[in-house]
């Protein structure tokens, strides 16, 4: 018996592609956007000199990084109903993944902000800018360039981590593959096709990362 059923490969390309563009990709895009916004907030909180502000941010990052993502998904989807909060699979997936991305990305953002030289803050202050204006006009534009490599890592991990939401009944790429493979037991074929799809997406993202790094580095001395 052949390990790969090429007819099945051909007939599954379409349905798996649908799982990719209707499940995996929108879930990645939405949670990365929400995660980034959360990451910026948490990074700024951690950089605050006020202990009451920085401590909750520190606690959040510690808890999220210290527990498995799968467990976080299960707590949101299977656990919260015990507190009277029942969420559908999609909202559960978005909440858990965004919280997870936010914690990891906040460390990348915090590091990038700290990497902007002190002289930039001082120069901005001497032309009259306050803290918020300095962040917005001087520090964050430079931090963005520094943060691209670590955030690209986070994004590429996220693409693959979205596969975990197949366990809470969200129909995305991996779950589609499971569904199609189950009747025929053609797991090798279907998981193989799914793996190629994930890989291609990550190749495209890596290419985008290189382009973005080049673009953002054009005014920086090498």
């Amino acid at each position: 018996m052949n390990a790969i059923d090429w007819d099945l490969v051909r007939s599954s390309l379409g349905p798996l592609f649908e799982g990719l563009v209707r499940g995996t990709l929108p879930l990645t895009a939405v949670t990365f956007a929400l995660g980034l916004a959360l990451a910026l907030l948490v990074a700024l909180m951690r950089l605050s000199g006020n202990w009451l502000v920085s401590a909750p941010a520190r606690f959040y990052v510690s808890v999220i990084r210290g527990t498995p993502l799968l467990l976080q998904l299960f707590i949101v989807f299977f656990g919260l109903p015990a507190l009277g909060l029942t969420l559908d699979p999609w909202p559960s997936a978005i909440i858990a993944l965004s919280l997870n991305v936010g914690a990891y990305a906040s460390e990348a953002v915090r590091g990038a902000i700290l990497a902007v030289p002190r002289g930039q803050w001082e120069a901005a202050m001497t032309v009259g800018m306050g803290r918020v204006t300095t962040l917005r006009r001087v520090v964050l534009p430079q931090a963005a360039r520094i943060a691209v490599p670590p955030l690209s890592n986070t994004l590429i991990s996220l693409v693959k981590d979205t596969s975990l939401v197949s366990t809470i009944l969200v129909t995305e790429l991996l779950r589609r593959a499971q569904e199609i493979a189950a009747p025929s037991f053609a797991f090798f074929t279907l998981y193989g096709v799914a793996a190629v799809y994930y890989w291609v997406v990550c190749l495209v993202l890596s290419f985008g990362q290189t382009r973005l790094e080049t673009k953002l580095s054009r005014h920086v001395a090498v």
Partner: peptide
């Protein structure tokens, strides 16, 4: 400043 501290971006 000694190190000019211009905004590079």
């Amino acid at each position: 400043f000694q190190a000019h501290n211009l905004f590079p971006h």
